[in-house]
Amino acid sequence: MIEYLVCAAAFGLLLLGIHRKVIARIQMRPGPPVWQEILHALKFSFKSTWVPRTASATLFVGIVLVAIAIWSAALFVVLAGESILILIGIYMLHKIVEHGFGLSSGSPYGKFGGVRSVISAASEIPLFVTITAIYFFTGSLLLRDIVAYQAVHGPLLLIVPPAAIAMYLVILSKLPFGPFSIVESKEIVSGYKTEHFGVWRAALAVTDGLKTFVLLYAFVLIFLGALPFWLILALMTAVLVSLSFVCAITPVLSPYDSVTVQSIITGLMLAYIGYLWWVVP
């Protein structure tokens, strides 16, 4: 099991490296090598590390542990085929982790990152709408049931395409450099990550790797169903590259606009659910 964690984190970091590379190439820059994010994680773990004097020490360190722990748990939830509600819960609680990172240091940049993550929390309700749409068809939220449903009826991507789009947007909002990445956008240095340097940052990189892996893996499992493992990895990469295209050609929205756009998407999804409720007996 521990090997899954390590491999998932490494592969997730590799995906983030590919993400950066693709964006760079679209913008006609050479870009860093694809394994740059893995190197980053290692590099940061060798740096000397302490806790800033102004920080709330326990929270400053504790939140790093919590961050890795919740995404490790998320990976196990996905692997075990448990309820995707748990996965979504962990996803939402990643917001709390962002607050914790941002606020615990006392730095104004971190604080702005934390405040922005509060703002954007309300806009991530498309996730729940996605869930409801899936529940309409599968009648269960256990991942293994969803996969079993797709083995019979074909991929959910073709059955509920709007739900797939909503979850795609949600993953987009978690990727760096995207239109909704207001939490760590560059005008506030690195947002909530600003004050976590050295080993803390390395641990944060591990979290990012796990998070990217879990979200993309869950996306493929939920909307395409059980496939050979190599094909799943290939599809994850394909989804990520498509996301990178979106990130490369869109500007970062201003914080409140980002939330408004996401809320409008939620509204559209709710209308779609209403339509489903009307049509499907």
């Binding site: 929270l59 609680l93 917001k95 006392g106 509060v118 929390a121």
Partner: peptide
């Protein structure tokens, strides 16, 4: 969230979520 006192302020958003 402008208020200082991160461990307590976090409880606000945690409980709501």
């Amino acid at each position: 969230f402008r208020a200082p006192g991160a461990p307590y302020v976090i409880m606000c958003s945690l409980s709501s979520l």
